[in-house]
C-alpha cells in the first residue's frame, strides 16, 4: 500500500514540502498582505502598513526557504536565520506591550489560518488526500515558526537578564569619596562571592585613585552576615591593608560581631556601629577632629 501511494504522488503530485514551498513563493505578496492585517503585525509595525507588509514578505520568504529544504519541523533550519532578529524584535515588542508568552504564541498561531485557507484555495484540481497532506505540512511549518519565535525571545530574555545583572552589580557598589583621603562604600543587599569580588575591585581602585588612607565598609544594609559573608569582608579588609590603607567596618550589629568572633579571624579590623562614627574615627586619625561650635557645646565627637 505505501508503495502505491508513493508512486501515485511522484507521478501525479509533487512532494508536499515542495508543493508548500512553491505555494509560499507564488503567494508571497498575498500572504504578506493578509498577515499585515493580523494583530501581531498590526500592533508591532505601527508606522505604516507597508512596513508590516515588508516584514510579512520576509517571513514568507523564510518559510518558503525552510519548506524547500524539507526541514519543516526543524527550528534550526538555516532558512529561519534571516528573520530571527526580526521575529525577536516583534516578540519583544508584544512582550513590552504586556502580553504573556502564551498570548504572543497565540498571535503567531493566528498567522496559520489565512495561509492554510490560501493554500487550499490554490489547489482546486489536486486530490483531497494531497490537499490534506499539504495543509498538514504547512500547519507543521507554522508550528515550527511559533517555536522559533518563542525560542528567540527566551534567548533574548536571558541575554537581557545577564546584561542587567552586570549593571546591577556596578550600580549596587558606589564607592564614595567621603573626605580627603577617606572613601566609603555602603553595602546594600546580599553579599555573595561574585558581588564581593566587584566590591573589592572597585574599592581598591578608588583607594589608589584617591590615595585614600581610609576605606569605610558600611554593612548597615546587609541583611545577614553568615560565615561566608564575614569571610568576604575580611578578605576586603586584608586587601585594603596590603595596599597600605586602613579599613573600617561600620554598621556592625551585635549578632554580626558574634559571627566574626566565632570565625576566629585574627585580622585587626576597626569597627564602628555607625557610618558617622567611622568617619569621625578616620578623620581623627588623619589629624582632624570634629568639634561642635554651638555655644557651650564644644567637645570632640
Amino acid at each position: 500500500m505505501p508503495e502505491h501511494h508513493t508512486t501515485a504522488r511522484n507521478t501525479e503530485n509533487p512532494v508536499p514540502t515542495q508543493e508548500v514551498g512553491a505555494f509560499l513563493g507564488r503567494r508571497r505578496e498575498q500572504l504578506a498582505q493578509r498577515w499585515a492585517d493580523e494583530p501581531l503585525f498590526r500592533a508591532v509595525f505601527t508606522v505604516s502598513r507597508d512596513e508590516a507588509v515588508e516584514a510579512g514578505r520576509a517571513v514568507a520568504d523564510a518559510l518558503a526557504q525552510v519548506a524547500g529544504s524539507g526541514r519543516v519541523e526543524d527550528t534550526d533550519s538555516p532558512g529561519f536565520t534571516p528573520v530571527r532578529e526580526q521575529l525577536t524584535r516583534m516578540a519583544a515588542s508584544r512582550g513590552r506591550a504586556g502580553l504573556t508568552a502564551a498570548q504572543i504564541s497565540r498571535e503567531v498561531d493566528a498567522l496559520r489560518r489565512p495561509a492554510v485557507d490560501l493554500l487550499v484555495a490554490d489547489l482546486p484540481q489536486a486530490s483531497s488526500e494531497h490537499v490534506r497532506e499539504c495543509a498538514t505540512t504547512l500547519t507543521a511549518l507554522m508550528g515550527t515558526l511559533r517555536l522559533v519565535v518563542m525560542e528567540t525571545s527566551l534567548t533574548e530574555g536571558q541575554a537581557l537578564i545577564d546584561r542587567q545583572q552586570v549593571q546591577l552589580l556596578e550600580v549596587a557598589t558606589p564607592v564614595i569619596r567621603l573626605w580627603d583621603g577617606i572613601v566609603g562604600v555602603p553595602l546594600i543587599g546580599t553579599l555573595d562571592s561574585a558581588r564581593s569580588q566587584v566590591v573589592m575591585e572597585t574599592l581598591l581602585e578608588s583607594v589608589v585613585d584617591q590615595q585614600a588612607r581610609f576605606a569605610i565598609l558600611d554593612i548597615t544594609g546587609v541583611p545577614t552576615v553568615d560565615s561566608l559573608v564575614a569571610q568576604h569582608l575580611m578578605k576586603t579588609v586584608a586587601a585594603v591593608r596590603l595596599m597600605g590603607a586602613e579599613c573600617v567596618v561600620s554598621g556592625i550589629r551585635p549578632a554580626i560581631a558574634q559571627t566574626i568572633v566565632h570565625l576566629g579571624l585574627d585580622l585587626p579590623v576597626v569597627t564602628r556601629s555607625s557610618l558617622a562614627d567611622a568617619l569621625a574615627y578616620a578623620l581623627h586619625r588623619l589629624g582632624a577632629d570634629i568639634v561642635s561650635v554651638t555655644p557651650g557645646g564644644a567637645g570632640t565627637r
Binding site: 545583572q165 552586570v166 552589580l169 555573595d192 562571592s193 561574585a194 569580588q197 566587584v198 561566608l228
Partner: peptide, 9 residues
C-alpha cells in the same frame, strides 16, 4: 567572564 563567575567556596 563578566560578572565574575563564583569560585568554588
Amino acid at each position: 567572564t563578566r560578572p565574575p563567575r563564583p569560585r568554588e567556596e
